[in-house]
């Protein structure tokens, strides 16, 4: 995975709470293969009307926000279904960071596994960021090492689980880490066969 250090990019305001993963990618698109790209389905029912025409006043259809790599939303972003496709849709669309006051736990770990930064800010700071974006500011600077968000003269701090920060900064993949623990896993399973045989050996 590509390491994430700093990001200086356009941002789009999404002033809604509880933008759940069903909204990020509706279930009907999830039969598709990832190779087709999921970006076209991101927030589909917010972006398009029943005739598949773009809804003019939706943030991602605003030409000013074209090319945005940062999304700013209200609390409980990415709640709900564990579908990693929600993260694929954001990443394939071009997003590299979501700023919100709180995130679904499964969404956050899926995000980090795909190099997308879930940056947690206070509700007050989220409101201020939304106001700045709606008031004419277009770009945001993110410093992951310092956990800082900068817009013009404003500086906001964000929180992220330190383990995830390290993983993003280095572009680490869990599988690379686990590959050195093969012997420990085998040893654990062998010992557990004695301790909890009902967990390790099942009837046919």
């Amino acid at each position: 995975m590509k390491p994430f250090t700093n990001l200086d990019a356009k941002a789009a305001p999404l002033p809604f709470a509880s933008v759940d993963t069903d909204q990020l990618i509706p279930a009907r698109f999830m039969k598709r293969s990832r190779s087709e790209g999921y970006g076209q389905y991101l927030l589909y029912d917010m972006r398009f009307d029943a005739d598949a025409k773009p809804i003019a006043d939706f943030t991602l259809n605003n030409p000013v926000r074209a090319g945005a790599e940062i999304l700013v939303a209200r609390r409980n972003f990415g709640a709900g279904s564990s579908r990693e496709a929600a993260v694929y849709a954001l990443v394939d669309y071009g997003f590299r960071c979501v700023i919100a006051p709180s995130f679904g736990d499964i969404f956050s770990s899926n995000a980090v596994n795909n190099g997308l930064l879930p940056a947690q800010v206070s509700e007050e700071d989220a409101e201020e960021l939304l106001n700045l974006l709606e008031g004419g500011y277009e770009a945001i600077f993110i410093d992951l090492d310092a956990c800082e968000i900068r817009v013009a003269n404003h500086v906001f701090h964000f929180k992220i689980e330190p383990v995830w920060r390290t993983k993003l900064l280095n572009g680490w993949d869990d599988l690379d880490l686990t590959s050195s623990y093969g012997a420990d896993i085998a040893r654990y399973a062998e010992a557990d066969r004695t301790r909890h045989p009902w967990l390790q050996e099942l009837p046919d």
């Binding site: 564990s82 990693e84 596994n113 599988l175």
Partner: peptide
């Protein structure tokens, strides 16, 4: 607990998961 696809792949391959 529920997991995403990257974690599903990790469990399929190793029968383990890294968690905090």
């Amino acid at each position: 607990f529920g997991i995403g696809a990257s974690e599903v792949a990790h469990v399929l391959m190793t029968q383990t998961l890294w968690q905090k």
